[in-house]
Write a protein that binds this DNA or RNA. Structure first.
Lengths: 102, 102
DNA sequence: TAATTTGGTTTATAAAATAAATCTATTTAT
DNA sequence: ATAAATAGATTTATTTTATAAACCAAATTA
């Protein structure tokens, strides 16, 4: 799909949960595991895996700290992630633009 | 992800190739296999599978005819598919709206 | 002190995407 | 006429992803 008409969709972002996480991190700049889990309504296992992928791609930074005695996993979007997200949103337009005109 | 903030994304449409096909069928109302293959730059195998899924969901109609002596697979979007596509595009907005504002 | 809850990770399973192989019929070249 | 190549796909196999289930350690509650 390297055609003119449709721009390729970054597979790392073209996932419901990862997209939701990135969307949240764009708003808040920093969020912990529990917050992300609640906002996305994801299971902990799924969230853990998807955060790993985003982190592995360098789209988010993950910092493991403690809040009091409990572990606390903090996430924030990197510049690279920010750029990738904007590129993804732009690419999406090539698929849905005429639908918006309906 | 049945939360208020993020609307669920129809898994049948949340696929690069199926989304591209639907996007094309929204424009042209009717297209054959070869045209869809060229416009999406997909492999024939992949396209065949994804057309089956869209057809199985009732999002497109597939008519097998002949053009001269060669087989010709015609596709068009159904009302159900049209509705699903618009709903999908609307749901997407809940993930990417703030990005558009950047 | 025995459950239960919190905050996760790891492993296993199911589903999806992609690629490779195959098939039928038709052209084109020999 | 026959072999090789092309068109238009489908089927099967492989890889990748997503999801769910199981698990773990520490902390809290009963």
């Amino acid at each position: 799909m390297e055609q003119k008409q449709f721009k390729p969709l970054d597979p790392l972002l073209h996932s419901e949960l990862r997209l939701a996480v990135m969307s949240l991190l764009l708003e808040v700049e920093e969020a912990d595991f529990v917050y992300l889990k609640k906002q996305t309504d994801a299971t902990a296992g799924n969230l853990s895996v998807q955060l790993d992928k985003l982190s592995g791609a360098g789209y988010i930074e993950v910092e493991k700290t403690f809040r009091g005695k409990k572990p606390c996993t903090l996430c924030r979007m990197t510049d690279k992630g920010h750029e990738a997200f904007l590129t993804y949103v732009d690419a999406l337009q090539s698929y849905i633009l005429q639908a918006n005109k309906q």
